[in-house]
Write a protein that binds this DNA or RNA. Structure first.
Length: 712
DNA sequence: ATGATAACAGTTTTT
DNA sequence: CTGTTATCAT
């Protein structure tokens, strides 16, 4: 749902009140069909509507189906007005998918329920209530790049990435600059707190809002206005949250406010798939949900409809090595299938060669390219893989990487639009004032900005009101005339945007020759096609929302990452993080070595690394191949590497195939156990899906599962 | 103001 | 080995 229609939606709710429940008979038979398609656990999750509910949804267990069915049940069977429900996700993609699936289940005559991302909800809420904080709702949402630019300007010495993440941490812990300063002990942190204070002042001055503000200002409003809080909570009587394992402290507290009057909170997630701890997500939110929300009902969805038994066995045994987890075991609904394979290679070149060869073989046997994917823990591993795929003539699509809206040429366009909708936006103005070149350098721009500030005017206003003579004392003569025409074009475009929006793009390109100025730059063709794509997006948006303004378009796209990957005739390669939520018939995971997966470094968490392994493995539907190398070229040097411990923990050994064939251990092998130390294998037997070894530790004989020892 | 070089750091990234 | 940023001549 776009911003325009969402706002309309908010208004409509107020005006028409609740919609009437649909035809009960019809709803009943539709609901019966939905229930028939659910398993027992899913059905019980759908029918539990009052009080806190934790749905532990394992990978591939029909999570989306369960949430959407529950929504349909609430609306069509229980008769809850759609306006009283709120469903939040993390990504636009998830929201879109869920909305589409929910629409197919919910009876047509109910108004679409509010189903959007956390941040979009924040945006909508602020549009309606930010005035209570003494701010105007014409604020602009900035992205993390904009944020870094602002921080860089404020601070010169400390690394902006660090400052940005610390400020984010403060905001997500609801710590204001004063408190941050008070609690800082190191001088660096005092310094960061000062930067934080200046940054906040800058945002306020320019009426900007960053991603974190969308949530923390929303929280602040609810926290400081009891009446608004009660009213909002009563409005959304049934709340559902997707991917709950990825929520942070602020999101938890926001949810506590939102359901303070009813506690009808249903969260869906998987503690075993929590892979964003480094970004502030708190696994504890899902682990201790029943402590935050007493009298919680817990439903586990453990039936897996995605992967073969063989793949699930491997994934289950890996994740069992984690201690902090609620504990569940995926149950296969598919037959055993092919064994999980382990490739080993001497180096990354051979690895990519082997993987490419396997992929070639699959393609030649008629497998469709988009059913194949290769995953890696760090993006740096993509290079050798890409080379190998190129050599083998395998077309691939790299998912992730630099996002569409983050590309320089697209950001320039966005800045143009921002200046056109708000000429006082100094920040965006500075980005484009010398694009295309108008002979203004860093020094001149700085001078203009300072003088404007001294005159208490925005740069645009300042330039516009100055005489040519006055301007010439700040910039060279040639630049002054360029500036004049720049100002004129912006004003004219603003009028066009208001009066003839369908002409807007053509006029923009005409006046500023955006595409022409890209000629001669590296990757010229890509850049021009990105500009064209952006133009297309704008036109589509206007076509779909004829009443929308440029400002609405801008706020909407700031919250968007490029989502829909076009299906083509190429295989996919991506990081494990980027693969969350996806599935592939044939999956390769490369870089299964100590130091890469698990990645070891400061702040690394072995259990989170293991969950990453688990997420990776559970993307596979019928074939899973892992690969490891003896040495890898990384950061300019070649490093000797050992096989990932996860290969062993997953019950796999070199050459693979522990399921039916020989175990890697035989009588007489020397092994080491974490507690008992070194010992000799005296017997091998099978225990469930794993091998059990009888080991003699210096006279002390014990039965131990093979995955708990390592070979010497 | 602009382009060329040196110095440097280097996971994962939903909004 | 990469890509990004700071600094220095032109």
């Amino acid at each position: 749902m776009n911003l325009a229609s969402c706002c309309h939606f908010f208004h409509t709710l107020v005006k028409i009140g609740y919609n009437k429940t649909s035809n009960a008979m019809k709803a009943r038979s539709d609901m019966d069909k939905i229930f028939d398609s659910l398993n027992d656990a899913q059905r019980s999750a759908v029918e539990t509507i009052d009080g806190p509910l934790l749905i532990l949804a394992g990978a591939g267990s029909g999570k989306t189906k369960t949430i959407t069915s529950r929504l349909a049940y609430l609306l069509d069977s229980v008769g809850v007005p759609s306006s009283q429900t709120l469903t939040l996700t993390f990504t636009n993609k998830a929201a879109k998918e869920m909305r589409e699936r929910a629409m197919g289940l919910i009876s047509q005559n109910s108004y679409p329920p509010l189903l959007c991302t956390f941040h979009k909800f924040g945006l909508l809420f602020l549009k309606f209530h930010i005035h209570l904080l003494g701010r105007s709702n014409t604020f602009v949402v900035i992205d993390s790049d904009d944020k870094k630019k602002i921080l860089k300007k404020i601070n010169a010495d400390l690394p902006t990435a660090l400052v940005a993440s610390e400020i984010s941490r403060y905001k997500n812990s609801l710590i204001d600059p004063k408190e941050a300063y008070a609690q800082a002990e190191l001088t660096n942190y005092k310094h960061i707190a000062k930067i934080y204070e200046e940054y906040q002042a800058y945002l306020l001055d320019n009426n900007l809002v960053d991603f974190d503000d969308l949530l923390c200002l929303t929280y602040k409003l609810l926290d400081e206005n009891d009446e608004l809080c009660t009213q909002t909570s009563e409005k959304y009587r049934y709340i559902m949250i997707d991917e709950y394992q990825d929520t942070n402290e602020l999101q938890l507290r926001l949810l506590q406010k939102l359901c303070s009057t009813h506690n009808n909170l249903c969260v869906v997630g998987d503690d075993d798939q929590s892979i964003y701890g480094w970004r502030g997500a708190h696994v504890r939110n899902i682990l201790e949900f029943d402590q935050d929300f007493p009298n919680t009902t817990i439903v586990k969805l453990e039936h897996n409809y995605r992967s073969t038994q063989a793949i699930l066995t491997v994934a289950n045994s890996l994740i069992e090595h984690n201690r902090s987890r609620l504990g569940k075991t995926l149950i296969a609904t598919k037959p055993s299938g092919e064994d999980v394979k382990v490739l080993s290679a001497h180096d990354e070149t051979e690895e990519s060669q082997k993987v490419a060869k396997e992929i070639r073989r699959l393609l030649d046997s008629g497998v469709r390219a988009n059913e194949i994917a290769v995953l890696y823990r760090i993006n740096a591993l993509s290079r050798s893989l890409e080379e190998g795929l190129n050599r083998a003539g395998v077309a691939y699509k790299l998912v992730g990487g630099l996002r569409f809206y983050d590309r320089a040429e697209v950001k320039d366009l966005i800045s143009y639009l921002r200046v056109i909708t708000n000429v006082h936006d100094n920040f965006s103005l500075k980005r484009i004032i010398n694009k295309p070149k108008r002979g203004l350098g860093k020094a001149t721009i700085e001078k203009l900005e300072l003088s404007a500030m001294a005159a208490s005017k925005s740069m645009f206003e300042f330039i516009d009101t100055l005489s040519d003579g006055e301007l010439e004392s700040l910039a060279r003569k040639k630049s002054v005339s360029e500036l004049r025409s720049f100002i004129r074009e912006i004003v004219e475009l603003r009028d066009i945007a208001e009066e003839a929006i369908y002409q807007f793009i053509d006029q923009l390109e005409n006046r500023f020759k955006i595409k022409e100025t890209l000629k001669g730059l590296p990757d010229e063709a890509d850049k021009i096609s990105n500009v064209d794509e952006f133009y297309g997006l704008f036109r589509d948006y206007i076509k779909q929302n004829p009443e929308a303004s440029v400002a609405e378009f801008l706020n909407d796209i700031t919250l968007q990452s490029d989502q829909d990957q076009v299906e083509g005739e190429s295989i996919y390669i991506m990081s494990i993080h980027a693969s969350k939520g996806l599935e592939f018939e044939h999956l390769f995971v490369i870089g299964m070595e100590e130091g890469f997966l698990p990645l070891i470094g400061d702040g690394s968490d072995l259990e989170e690394e293991r969950r990453l392994g688990y997420v990776a493995f559970t993307r596979a539907k019928s074939n899973l191949t892992l690969s490891s190398v003896n040495s890898r070229f990384y950061k300019g040097r070649r490093t000797e590497l050992q096989k990932s411990r996860f290969i062993n923990e997953a019950g796999l050994c070199e050459g693979s195939l522990i399921l039916e064939k020989n175990t890697a251990y035989k009588k007489g092998d020397l092994v080491r156990h974490k507690i008992f130390g070194a010992g000799r294998v005296e017997g091998v037997s099978k225990s469930g899906r794993e091998f059990k070894l009888l080991i003699n530790f210096g006279g002390n004989k014990r039965d131990i599962l093979a995955s708990f020892v390592e070979k010497l």
